[in-house]
Amino acid sequence: MRSTAKGPVKGNVLVAGAGSALARAVAEGLAARGCGLVLAARDEGEAARTAADLALRFGVATAALGFDARDAVAAAALPARAEAALPGGLGGVLVAFAVMPDQETVERDVAAIHDLVDVNVRATLVFIEAAAARLENRPGSFLCAFSSVAGDRGRRKNYAYGATKAALSAAMEGLWARLSPKRVTVLCVNAGPADGAMSWGVFPPDSPLLVSPERVARDVLSALEHRRRVVYTPWFWRPVMALLRALPAPVFRRLPI
């Protein structure tokens, strides 16, 4: 589950999907620890604004790249572009891009399924392989991906998105087996619903289930420093999901969730 060694997070970190509030919060936590940052987002202007803010407030080197996760070729090329953008090589990679269409949309629109799988599975797996190839020979580096509690169980209201996150979680487990002997931290973040653009208008803003981006960032940074394999954020999702996974499907189906 965890190795005993604890170490600082350091070096330049590539954040793929830097446009979301979650990714920005983790990037800020990394900047506060002195990491250089390459921020890649579909909207390069947004990445550039976040890069400017973090460089100014934390005095770290930053760079911004435009990156469209619908393009798997671009995903494969991103780690090399990031290394070219900021001298010093990559010490870590954060996978934070994903789409979450409504389940009803997925059920009536094949294009939405294509888009979901293109971004959350195709580009994501291509990207983490490209990242793994670079980090493999860098002991002390890390690869961290945002999965979701939705990937732990297939739920009537969200199974398509959940299926893509289950794929990511499985890939991260395998990567952990492959890279942790080489002293590369591989962390899968199973976040509950977070207070960001994806959940705005879906959950009431004062819902006790919503986790703030800052809290997610604290949990992720702490898990990276402790070289964990899996972190649930907030922590209560771990026992909740353990319980839900133990339920037989006919029972799970009847839950009002």
Partner: peptide, 12 residues
């Protein structure tokens, strides 16, 4: 990030 409880409150 999808969670376990949806809310009926999606803007119509």
């Amino acid at each position: 990030m999808a969670g376990l409880s949806d809310v009926s409150d999606v803007s119509a």
